[in-house]
């Protein structure tokens, strides 16, 4: 075997090895690169800054795969409920005029405690916890007793 051929073989070996290391390191490093959304939204979710929501208004916030309605009441309190209507699962909205939570599908109404007060909804909306830390609104799942 000629020296030239051996050199070529060694060259291929190191090329293949480098390539392999590269194709392992690259996915591994990009795996470790923090994704845009820092973690799976399971227990809490950031809902924006306090000044982004005017008094007496509501906003739908995505909580993982479930929508949550965040309301800043006319008395300047922050409250949140699951936004899925208990009747047929439409997404509810905040009605500034009534100061109540309203489901457009069948005109269901909930009060600001989440209780179903009119229309077809059979059950109240589940409440969520709202915390404000450094002007940031954080919605959290209520701690369930287990």
């Amino acid at each position: 075997m000629s020296v030239k051929r051996r050199k070529f073989l060694d060259y291929i070996l190191s090329l293949g090895f480098t390539g392999l290391v590269g194709s392992i390191i690259y996915p591994a490093l990009s795996y470790l690169k923090p994704p845009k959304q820092a973690e799976a939204a399971v227990n809490s979710v950031k809902a924006g800054k306090v000044n982004e929501i005017p008094v007496n208004s509501g906003k739908i916030v995505r909580f993982g795969r479930k929508p949550v309605i965040l309301i800043r009441t006319s008395t300047d309190e922050f409250i949140a409920f699951t936004a899925t209507c208990t009747h047929l699962g439409c997404i509810v909205q905040y009605r500034e005029d009534k100061q109540q939570i309203w489901c457009a599908c069948h005109n269901g109404l909930f009060d600001l405690k989440g209780r179903n007060i009119s229309g077809p909804p059979p059950r109240p909306l589940d409440p969520f916890l709202v915390q404000i830390i450094d002007d940031e609104i954080i919605i959290a799942k209520p701690k369930r007793m287990s």
């Binding site: 795996y31 690169k33 845009k36 799976a40 399971v42």
Partner: peptide
Amino acid sequence: FYYQPGVDSSYESVRFLMTKVNF
């Protein structure tokens, strides 16, 4: 690095890992 054990978080974190994390 991404797994969070828990009734909700287990599934959701694996889903997160599979959809939002590179590779």
